[in-house]
Every structure is written in C-alpha cells, then in structure tokens.
C-alpha cells in the first residue's frame, strides 16, 4: 500500500526540457567530483550533482588554514582549489556521465573570457545536464573586485554565456550585496534559466591568543545551519521577484529545512556543508521529502513550491500565542 502511494508522488521537475528526478541536489564544492564517497552514497537517489568549481587551469587553492568551525557553521577559504576543466573532462566526466543522476558542472573564473572558454570546452562533451556559474570570484582584470557583487558584470557574464549554450544556465548568486533580487532580475533578463540562492556569506574569526585571523585569507565564506534563516529570506525575496526557478541553498540539514525552502519559493534545493558531516544526508533528505508528501497527501512535490501561507495577520498572531 505504501509503495503504491509512493509511486504516485511526482518528485521530478523539468528545466529547459531536461527532467530532474527529484528536487534534492548536492551543492558545488561539497561533494567533490562525485567519486570520493561513491561507496557510501547512492547518487541515483538525487536530482543531480553540482560539481566542484572548474576553472580553465588547475588552481592550487589557498594556504592553510582553510577551515574554521563556528557556531552551527563553518568558515572556509578553499580558494577554488580544483583540477581544472581539462583534467575534469579526462578523468572525472567519464565516470560521472555513467551515474544515474544529472551532472551540473560549476564554473569559476577570473575573467569573462575564462568563463566562456571553460563553458565552450564543456559544450563539446556528452553527459552534462546544465551549468552553474559561480560569480563569487575575484575579477583579476578589474583589480580583484568580485564579479558577483557588480550587477552589470554579473549580467554581462550571463549574457555572454547565454550566447554560447542552449543548455540550462544557472547563476549562483552571492548574498553579499544590498539587494540580491536586483541581481536575480538582471540575470533573468540576460537569459539565465535559474538562479542558485545563496553562496556563502563573508565572515571572519580571530585567534585571541595569537591575535591572528584564523583563516589564512583573513575572511572567508560562512556556511552551514547558521546561515539557513538568511538563505531562506533571500530565496523568498528572489522567488517573489523573478519568474525563473530558484535553487535554494544555505544550511539545509534536514527534510524539514528543505520543505521550508520549497515553501519559500525554491523549485529545488542543494545540500552543502552538511555533506561534510553526513555524506549520505542528501539521500536522507530526498527520502524525508517523500515521507512528508505521503503524510500530507501531496501528489506532486511541485505544489509545495512557493506555497507559503502568507496570511501574515494569522501567522503573526499565532507566533505571539
């Protein structure tokens, strides 16, 4: 009986003609290239894998210390350490494309040309479902300013990449701006198919014995459950202001968290930092979503997207009682 009901629940969704089997993904930089924990995680249970960021050449990344645990979260300054797109194509993609899930390379670059070069090279490959663009990188030509905090630059990257591909183009937005929805509207206008909301928040920690910053780069990116309420608010803001789908990401640690993101307007979610704590958490969350759907008589997970009950008078009153 349970199985027959389970079979009726529609978990899949479609983006630019590509079907994803469910709404749970693993976030870029938190699942390597899919092979590190292949014996533990049944990735066929996931909507897809966002790979570690890829740049044109391999990047060594930042010197240690790259990681600091903070209250309910962590700071990182990995420095986009990656094997480079060529090695990815030779050594990782042949394995990845055999997996029964969607593969979404994440592209990071330090110039507009590099974004285009990496994407064009990936365009020649089989087995890629979509691209996610990490715009939270320093723009070397413009004095190291972050692309992603410059709205016109973010738009320009989107427009340039749009011309190069017919595949789904997802722009990962940084929350370190005044109005994230302006950035979302801009990339939507320039042809993005979806946005990922949010990348890490800038944070810092200091060792009071040595008076030195704990990270070698002084500041880093804050992630984990600590940022979930911020991410949820940003997803809510963006989902209200654009028509393209939103991938909700930021501190998701349970199916309940994932449901909150769907209700706030996310079409799908990405699990990030919690993969480090529990490599199989994404599968547990996918299971949890189905259990929730079954318990609440939901036949299509899509009906949860943006289904926030915004009768504020009622909810404010209820929160006071």
């Amino acid at each position: 009986m349970t199985a027959s009901i389970k079979n009726k629940i529609k978990t899949s969704f479609t983006l630019r003609g590509i079907e994803f089997k469910n709404r749970v993904f693993v976030a870029s930089g938190t699942f390597g290239y899919g092979d590190e924990v292949r014996k533990l995680v049944d990735v066929s249970r996931l909507g897809g894998i966002f790979t570690k960021s890829l740049s044109w050449k391999p990047r060594a990344g930042n010197p240690p210390q790259r990681i600091v645990e903070t209250a309910s979260g962590m700071l990182n300054s990995i420095g986009l350490a990656n094997i480079g797109v060529h090695t990815f194509i030779e050594q990782k993609l042949p394995y990845l494309r055999k997996l029964d899930t969607r593969i979404i390379p994440n592209i990071a670059a330090s110039s507009l040309q590099e974004y285009c070069d990496v994407l064009e090279l990936l365009e020649e490959q089989e087995g890629i479902a979509a691209y996610e663009i990490n715009v939270s990188c320093p723009n070397v030509k413009e004095g190291g300013l972050n692309f992603g905090t410059d709205c016109s630059m973010t738009g320009k990257i989107t427009a340039s990449l749009r011309k190069l591909t017919n595949k789904t183009l997802i722009i990962k937005l940084t929350p370190n701006v005044t109005h994230i929805s302006e950035f979302a509207r801009t990339v939507e206008a320039e042809g993005a198919d979806a946005v990922s909301v949010i990348n890490t928040l800038i944070g810092m920690a200091i060792d009071i014995k040595t008076r030195k910053p704990k990270l070698s780069t002084v500041t880093g990116g804050l992630s984990g459950p600590a940022i979930k309420p911020v991410a949820l608010a940003k997803v809510y803001e963006v989902a209200k202001s654009v028509k393209i789908p939103v991938f909700g990401v930021g501190g998701i640690a349970s199916a309940e968290d994932a449901i909150e993101f769907l209700l706030a307007g996310a079409t799908a979610v990405q699990i990030g930092t919690m993969n480090f704590v529990d490599p199989v958490i994404s599968v547990k969350i996918a299971d949890g979503l189905e259990i929730y759907a079954r318990e609440h008589g939901i036949l299509d997970m899509g009906t949860l997207v943006g289904a926030l009950d915004a009768d504020l008078k009622f909810s404010v009153l209820q929160s006071w009682l």
Partner: peptide, 11 residues
C-alpha cells in the same frame, strides 16, 4: 571538515 577529500580544507 569531511575527512574524505570533499571539502579540500586540509592542505
């Protein structure tokens, strides 16, 4: 963070 190479945190 992870102990298995996912996070690239321990160079």
């Amino acid at each position: 963070a992870c102990g298995v190479g996912l996070c690239q945190g321990c160079p």
